[in-house]
């Protein structure tokens, strides 16, 4: 009798997993870089290609690193949110213009406003690969010691800012 119940038991466990699975996103890939130092780069600035910026220069600061591009439609979705965030001034936002023509990127910033303290230009996408970028926009939160603390793939939402990013920023800044 009991052994005939085994299939039912296995099936119930399976249904449980499938039920949880309905609320998971199989397309999202978590970054293994969380808790690890942000990959180094030395890239020219969008505002002034003669100058370069590296994560080293931002040691001692908690900062958001936002990967975007002028060709990326969903980056427009989060643009207003980023502008609002930079106006509040709670955390500096640095941008990385990923696989893009600097001219196009400047046009976008001129038209929609510039939320970034600075934007670095990653024309060939090498620095992006180092960060494990796979779908723009992506946003990284980096602490004073240069460690990546959080990553969000896809456009930011108010909910994610309020529930995840801003509390973490406050914690890391103190």
């Amino acid at each position: 009798m009991k052994r005939f119940l085994i299939p039912l038991g296995i099936f119930i466990v399976l249904v449980g997993f499938l039920g949880i699975g309905l609320n998971l996103n199989p397309r999202e890939v978590p970054s293994p870089l969380i808790g690890k130092p942000a990959p180094d780069f030395k890239l020219p600035l969008l505002s002034d290609p003669a100058r370069q910026l590296s994560p080293e220069d931002l040691r001692g600061k908690v900062w958001l690193f936002n990967v975007w591009a002028s060709w990326c439609a969903s980056c427009r979705q989060e643009h207003d949110l980023l502008l609002e965030l930079s106006r509040q001034g709670s955390v500096p936002i640095y941008g990385m213009d990923y696989k893009d023509q600097p001219g196009d990127a400047q046009t976008v910033l001129a038209r929609y406003g510039n939320p970034y303290v600075e934007t670095v230009v990653d024309i060939d996408g090498r620095a992006g690969i180092n960060f494990g970028v796979y779908g723009v926009p992506e946003t990284y939160l980096i602490d004073k010691g240069g460690i990546i603390r959080y990553k969000h793939t896809g456009p930011l939402t108010q909910e994610i800012l309020d529930r995840k990013i801003l509390p973490l920023v406050k914690e890391l800044q103190s």
Partner: peptide, 8 residues
């Protein structure tokens, strides 16, 4: 690659 993208 796994350091950047994980076992995925």
């Amino acid at each position: 690659l796994t350091q950047r993208y994980g076992d995925f």
